[in-house]
């Protein structure tokens, strides 16, 4: 509630020190004063966040030091690359989306790798186009760019929900088909097939082959997943680019963000390989090319689609609870 009150009060203004303290409700009371035991979760989370914080500061410092100098800024590029690797190792929406898809849908290994790479690089490109396009060419203020970034994020969440729905519908169709086949084979509702001739264009596929992985349908889904991830610019990249634009370090910022994307791609690809392998291994263990198996695989795919749909809707909803600014 506090957030909403704040929204109406101080729309599009930077929060000043001490402004928040009396207006904002605490999330869970005086957590800060309660006794806590430290566990592995905390240790890991604390480590990742403190590293990210250090990186944010270091990137800012590097940019500041590059200003007015005639230097390539390799330190900045290297640092951005490492930030990309580390940032991707932490929790994030892109990784959840990609692994959910790869775990619940059969894919070839090289497709998983391509998806991870494309999504990570697209994130960098989105950030570049968004920030430089709006500030450099359209003359927007950095804050407006942040707002635009939030809207692009919302588009990506909507797309995610649509992809989820699409996958769900596709899985449902496959399952319905398998059920019909199962009934057909077990003969419980057997009937004469005088009019049922298996041939081209009949639409009956008893055995889903590997070829099915490459159907037009699945290419749409793959493109949708990649876009849903890649359209959402990484907050670190937006931050670096806005600073670079303001400090007139356009090229340095662009190189830094590309290095960041390459770093992210490496981590994401490793994750994609694991997910694809795990999924394929599971398929091999239980693989019978039977309608029952197809039904089960359809169930898993439907589950994946549902997860992505819900995730998309939830993120979309949560993004509207945010103020239209990221940096505040």
């Amino acid at each position: 509630m506090g957030a909403i009150a704040l929204l109406s009060e101080s729309h599009a203004t930077a929060l000043l020190p001490g402004e928040r303290t009396t207006t904002e409700l605490s999330r869970d009371g005086n957590h800060a004063d309660t006794e806590r035991a430290v566990d592995v979760w905390d240790q890991a989370a604390a480590w990742v966040w403190s590293k990210q914080r250090e990186f944010h500061r270091a990137l800012t410092r590097e940019l500041r030091e590059l200003r007015g100098k005639d230097s390539v800024g390799w330190v900045l590029v290297l640092m951005s690359f490492l930030y990309g690797v580390l940032h991707a190792a932490g929790p994030g929406h892109g990784k959840v989306v990609l692994t959910t898809y790869l775990l619940t849908h059969r894919s070839r290994l090289n497709r998983g790798i391509a998806m991870g790479t494309a999504a990570a690089l697209l994130q960098g490109v989105t950030a570049l186009l968004l920030v430089y396009g709006l500030i450099g060419f359209a003359g927007w203020l950095p804050r407006e760019t942040e707002t635009a970034s939030l809207w692009v994020t919302r588009v990506s969440f909507s797309l995610l929900a649509i992809v989820g729905l699409y996958l769900l519908a596709r899985a449902a169709a496959t399952m319905a088909h398998s059920v019909r086949q199962l009934r057909h084979e077990t003969g419980h509702v057997h009937h004469e097939h005088a009019d049922h001739v298996h041939g081209a264009g009949c639409g009956c596929r008893h055995l889903p082959s590997v070829v099915e992985i490459d159907t037009v349908d699945s290419r749409h889904a793959v493109a949708g997943v990649v876009l849903a991830i890649g359209l959402r610019p990484c907050s670190g990249a937006v931050l670096v680019l806005i600073l670079a634009a303001v400090m007139e370090l356009t090229w340095h910022g662009a190189f830094a963000v590309m290095a960041m994307s390459v770093g992210t791609a490496i981590t994401v690809v490793v994750l994609a390989i694991f997910a694809t392998k795990a999924r394929n291994w599971a398929s091999v263990v239980v693989a019978h090319q039977s309608p029952l198996w197809t039904l089960a695989a359809g169930g898993v795919a439907a589950f994946g689609g549902t997860l992505l749909l819900l995730l998309g809707l939830w993120l979309l909803n949560a993004s509207f609870a945010l103020k239209p600014t990221v940096g505040l």
């Binding site: 506090g2 957030a3 704040l6 928040r20 303290t21 904002e24 409700l25 605490s26 999330r27 009371g29 005086n30 957590h31 800060a32 004063d33 806590r36 035991a37 430290v38 566990d39 979760w41 905390d42 240790q43 989370a45 604390a46 480590w47 990742v48 966040w49 403190s50 609870a321 945010l322 103020k323 990221v326 505040l328």
Partner: peptide
């Protein structure tokens, strides 16, 4: 600050507050 506190602070979103006793720690 202990790790639990860092993790808690990290979990707070931009519009959330952990109360007025957090900063001093």
């Amino acid at each position: 600050p202990d790790a639990a506190l860092v993790a808690y602070a990290a979990s707070l979103g931009i519009n959330e507050s952990g109360g007025d006793g957090l900063g001093i720690q």
